[in-house]
Design a protein around this nucleic acid. Structure first.
Length: 424
RNA sequence: GUGGGUGUAGUUCAGUGGUUAGAGCGCCAGAUUGUGGCUCUGGAAGUCGUGGGUUCAACUCCCAUCACCCACCCCA
């Protein structure tokens, strides 16, 4: 095989389609229950959107974007996350002028990051996400968190931990940065090379560095939670109240910081315990400065993204399978040349009547047609054979019981429909 | 981007220098007259990831390359 799918990409195969559709259905349903409407934005955007939105000090922008020049010398980037595009669309289409809040979700948005593929990490993956614009208070934060938890719950996932934190706002963060830098300065020589750079650019990110030496230092670092301004503190307290009121098992983790620059106040992650350690299933937070940063009005927002491939990994970890669905309800087997046209006609009539029907395309023996239908789990077989056709009838057989009935061909569609609905 | 492992039928894998490369599962077909699941029998199917090199001879050794898996980094 010469041509392969590009590194870090996967095909969604027909046999997996029920699983994907089940997940998508659950997401749509829960988003709709919370009065969110779907948005679809382009797969690619001008690079500047992400440089300004996501932030040019972030790993995503610095080394993980699929960026190229198009034939008109425009710098184009394949979406590395979902929020920036939604915000751009909000501004460009002036959705901010509609009744507030503006609530939207995106479903299996393809997301691209140029990284080395690994367990649970692809170069193209898909995210479901929700964004709520225009709400200053913590009810919006609670709403999006509650919705994603309901989705995961509906899918049957258990034992996921929800971590929340507040990383402050432009009012309180400078003083915290100062306090953090003062603390880190004393340990500067022990920091990893990368964190030495972070010290100047974004000291917050030292807190979630995975290097052991940095973790030790981070553990005793001053907590942002002690430096929140009154507004941020009230907001964070309010969010906790709203989540506690719904018995959400949250844990406050001052170490979570998020790798995107736009977050303010609330940040949160939902963590799965895979056999190989923990992995973020979902990440999100509040981004009160983002809409203005990208050129819109000063409008707050909060949202999250959740990776569908990782949901599937966790479903597998927990041994959860999608509800099975019938591929074909009735298979019309034909016998010999003379049976083919009646079988074809009956199949088409059944489809018109809204019944999932199929027939033999392979000119196989009756035995082989049965074997084939059995492998597909077809519950009903119709046999269009010479003897019956001469009598103007066909046989219908229920595979589970083996019961056979001879019915007039002229009334076959209505009779079959009646049998199927009766058995259900 | 760095380091380690892997790459042989549709699939899971065996085969480590020597005739026509094997097995299980899957697929297709048959086991007397027009009927699935179980069993038995047979069949099809591989440019041994790709490209070079060493050798009388390479799936087997060497180099490169691509992809996958794993770790780091980071994250969904």
């Amino acid at each position: 095989m010469h041509i392969q799918s590009p590194k870090g990409t996967r095909d969604m195969l027909p046999k997996d389609s029920f699983l994907w559709q089940w997940i998508e259905h659950t997401m749509r349903k829960e988003a709709a229950l919370a009065s969110y409407l779907e948005i679809r934005t382009p797969v690619f955007e001008y690079t500047e959107l992400f440089e300004r939105g996501v932030g040019d000090t972030t790993d995503i922008v610095q080394k993980e974007m699929y960026t190229f020049l198009d034939k008109g010398d425009r710098s184009i980037t394949l979406k590395p996350e979902g929020t920036a595009g939604a915000v751009r669309a909000l501004i460009e289409n002036k959705l901010y002028a509609e009744p507030l809040p503006v609530k939207m979700y995106y479903l299996n948005n393809p997301i691209f990051r140029y990284e080395n593929p690994q367990h649970g990490r692809l170069r193209e993956h898909h995210q479901f996400g929700m964004e709520c614009f225009g709400v200053k208070g913590p009810t919006a934060d609670a709403e999006v968190i509650m919705t994603v938890l309901r989705i995961l719950n509906q899918l049957g996932l258990r034992n996921l931990s929800v971590k929340i934190n507040s990383i402050g706002c432009p009012v309180c963060r400078p003083s915290y940065h100062e306090a953090l830098r003062a603390y880190l300065k004393a340990h500067f020589d022990e920091l990893c090379p990368q964190c030495k750079e972070r010290y100047d650019r974004n000291p917050l990110r030292v807190l979630d560095c995975k290097e052991k030496s940095c973790q030790v230092i981070a553990r005793n670092a001053p907590s942002i939670l002690d430096h929140l301004c009154e507004e941020c503190d009230t907001h964070f307290e309010g969010l906790q109240q709203l989540l506690n009121a719904r018995q959400v098992p949250i844990s406050i983790d001052p170490q979570i910081v998020r790798g995107l620059d736009y977050y303010t106040k609330t940040v949160f992650e939902i963590i799965m315990q895979s056999p190989r350690g923990e992995m973020a299933l979902c990440g999100g937070g509040r981004y009160d400065g983002l809409v203005k940063e990208i050129g819109g009005p000063d409008m707050p927002g909060v949202g999250f993204g959740i990776g569908t491939e990782r949901i599937i990994l966790e479903l597998q970890n927990q041994g959860i399978e999608a509800p099975t669905r019938e591929i074909t309800t009735v298979f019309i087997a034909s016998l010999g040349e003379e049976g083919r046209m009646p079988a074809y006609q009956l199949c088409m009539d059944l489809r018109v009547a809204g019944i999932k029907a199929d027939f033999d395309h392979m000119n196989r023996s009756l035995k082989a047609q049965f074997r084939y239908a059995d492998k597909l789990g077809v519950p009903y077989m119709v046999i269009a054979g010479g003897d019956e056709l001469q009598r103007g009838t066909v046989k219908i057989k229920e595979m589970k019981t083996g019961d056979e009935k001879e019915i007039p061909l002229a009334e076959a569609v209505s009779t079959i429909k009646a049998i199927i609905t009766q058995d259900q």
